[in-house]
Amino acid sequence: MSIWINESSKVLVQGITGGQGTFHATRMTEYGTDVVGGVTPGKGGQVVDLPGRSVPVYDSMGQAVSETDADVSVIYVPARFAAAAIIEAADAFNEIKGEGLIVCITEGIPTLDMIRCVGHISEMSGIRLIGPNCPGIITPGENGGCKVGIMPGYIHAKGRIGIISKSGTLTYEAVAQTMSVGEGQTTCIGIGGDPISGTGFIDCLAAFEEDPETEAVVMIGEIGGTAEEDAAAWAADNFSKPIVGFVAGATAPPGKRMGHAGAIISGGKGTAEEKFSAFEKAGIHIARDPSKIGEVLVSVLIEAGLREP
């Protein structure tokens, strides 16, 4: 089991004829993702060659979903067109299937565009958005798996740990940490570092709670906002599995944006210290050194009786 995507998920690539789109559609297919087509307005009817298959390009998401019965769309279009792409995908999935997962990798989307997108999708109960400005989501399988995003697939392996993170390469670090102690992953989700985004920590935790295969979760936050505090408070009451938490940015100065648009301590709020203490208060096992996530995870699994000492 896994959450939201699995080896039979059918995936569309919005922006498939662009450099990024073609590159990552190729990598996803190599990993084992069932890429069934792509969308680039004005290029409908073309074909894109991927490893072992050629997939059709459609002019619109409506057409693409109707023709391919896809479940997932991943967006690699430039920032200025990304909000329109998200809304097009949401409308197509909602009207044709009543459900669908949209993963937006694009960085640099205007904040007010994202407020409009999130508002638009909030009225569609079957539509989920992951991102933007994120590495995507991956469910490792027995042979390959389903990768929807830009993460290096080979560092993952099928297992029993769920991973949720605001950051890209720090997610890979967390994956490597689980691997270093012999643990694989059910599903890893990069939720992105923008101030306004779709799926949050709580959505992911709720899904992992329901997933019988997931035994524990690694949660990686960063400075800015209160998403980590909110998730910790929610988890204390609603999440029964162990969580290992890390927050990046303990040394970040206030008032400075640290790369990610949302990673900023403003008005003294959003510090790593506040988030770590919220984690501790909620019974989340913290690793102050991300190189120790693996160690903490092992001890937590043993403590929970899920592994032999």
Partner: peptide
């Protein structure tokens, strides 16, 4: 590149914003 100057003595060069922050944090640790 995304660069913010701080007051310490150990320069860092990292890929990814989260990992860059984490690297600073671990240096401090």
């Amino acid at each position: 590149l995304s660069y913010v100057k701080l007051d310490g003595n150990i320069g860092c060069l990292v890929n990814g914003a989260g990992l860059a922050m984490a690297s600073m944090d671990v240096i401090k640790l």
